[in-house]
Design a protein around this nucleic acid. Structure first.
Lengths: 247, 247
DNA sequence: TTATTATTTTCCCATTTTGGGACAATAATA
DNA sequence: TATTATTGTCCCAAAATGGGAAAATAATAA
């Protein structure tokens, strides 16, 4: 079956990518009290993948990760962190592109550098959900947010990559104060608490959470936010330090 | 100048290594109250390097790291942790092997896959200093321990790799309790404290350190150690959990 | 105008953890 | 038996955390 898949010279490696090496980014967002990841659907399949790409021969891996991220989200300044490199010998043998994509040039694909074993450098990105413009790549037709607790079937070992990224995010949450990158410029204390609870996976006490956050002297209190609800209006805060930190 | 360097078919990549990808391990040891790293001297040069190697086409990166470690130390079960992947576009452009090694087949080397740009996966290993049998590889003639505070000139970006490994070790010291892998089977409390102080780089209080260690219920108190010194003999301890954890 | 309701914010006290000084124990030597 | 150099233990103050309760307040209902 012939499908309208444009691989932009990928098969011939016209862009001179490093072979056997890829980059995959877990793009985290926060929306409606849920932690989300941006996934790409492999062309006309039920299988999804992380935002990934390759490293050009003269390109650093951090710039490559930022480039890929820019292409998938439209964002320039993103909090990006390299968390682990995945290199199990069989990691790209299950749910391969060749298994999924049965477009015209399958034979050509099977023999191409794309269908070889890959070691993948894992990054995770923290973005403001509302600012992202999800854009599919050459291998996918849809870019969509998924709830972390309700992931679709995924290519290769991408599910484990997400799992490990979340572990790393949790470990960095308190030390590197990265959570703010998932929120808009201003936010309320309950919103911030919900973010923390969602990432950590367990509830926190309002009083103690607020005490801890305020004691760190990293938040600036703006005005109150009147939502129209029949209760006390929460304060808006903004993060004092620049919220985006690029690798 | 012709030198007796045996590259074991490296130049022709007879072992079918993944190109542009390497593994480097920072091997930490602890000796005479000093944190040490095992370095290899590039053949007949004053430049040293980490224990490194390449990944075979059908080999996972963790097994590859263990294989390299085994070759350099003679140890089978080592605590090994992947901490960062280094992929700056220029990282292998300064202090290159080609600059250092001017052995006969320089021209062949300059054109070989070895002289290309490499992305390197960084691991660090924690070993019992006394059990290591330092062994050079094809590119080096001596393997030697260096004090972390007195490092020699190093190839590529290996100095930064060590620095970042130490940062990672420090961050993991309390959470993963990895320090014990640097000590022999049994050790005294002052020895353990010295290890912690050396890694962290600042002094700790005896009383509080002991209280903390004992409260974790991870140490088994053995008999006393009589050294002949004119003072109270310290207890020997051993770590309850298995001290080696392989990636 | 006043009570009610749903939240947010603050306060306070008990408990736990940590900081840090002092003392007790002890192995060899004088 | 006293001395010396460590190691091991104890204790109290200070700080951090756990957790309940009260105060504040924005809209609505009476």
């Amino acid at each position: 079956m012939e499908r309208n898949v444009d691989l932009n010279g990928f098969l011939e490696n016209k862009q001179n990518f490093i072979p056997h090496l890829s980059i995959d980014s877990v793009i985290f967002g926060f929306h409606q009290d849920q932690l989300k990841v941006l996934l790409l659907r492999v062309h006309d399949s039920g299988v999804w993948s992380l935002s990934g790409g390759f490293v050009r021969m003269e390109e650093g891996i951090d710039p490559a990760a930022l480039r890929i991220l820019r292409e998938r989200t439209g964002l320039e300044n993103v909090y990006l962190e390299q968390y682990h490199t995945f290199g199990h010998e069989d990691r790209s043998k299950k749910n391969t592109l060749a298994d999924i994509l049965d477009f015209g040039h399958t034979e050509e694909f099977r023999n191409s550098w794309l269908n070889k074993r890959f070691v993948s450098i894992g990054y995770y990105a923290l973005v403001d959900f509302s600012k992202v413009n999800p854009t599919p790549d050459s291998f996918s037709d849809i870019a969509e947010w998924f709830d972390l607790k309700d992931l679709p079937p995924m290519i290769f070992d991408h599910r484990e990559m997400i799992h490990k990224a979340l572990e790393s995010l949790r470990a960095n949450l308190d030390t590197k104060l990265v959570g703010f990158n998932l929120l808009p410029e201003t936010f309320t204390m309950p919103e911030l608490q919900s973010l923390y609870e969602t990432i950590l996976g367990y509830p926190l006490r309002r009083n103690n959470f607020q005490r801890k956050m305020l004691s760190m002297d990293i938040l600036e209190r703006i005005e109150k936010l009147y939502t129209g609800a029949a209760n006390k209006a929460p304060y808006l805060y903004k993060f004092k330090a620049p919220t985006t930190e690029v690798v």
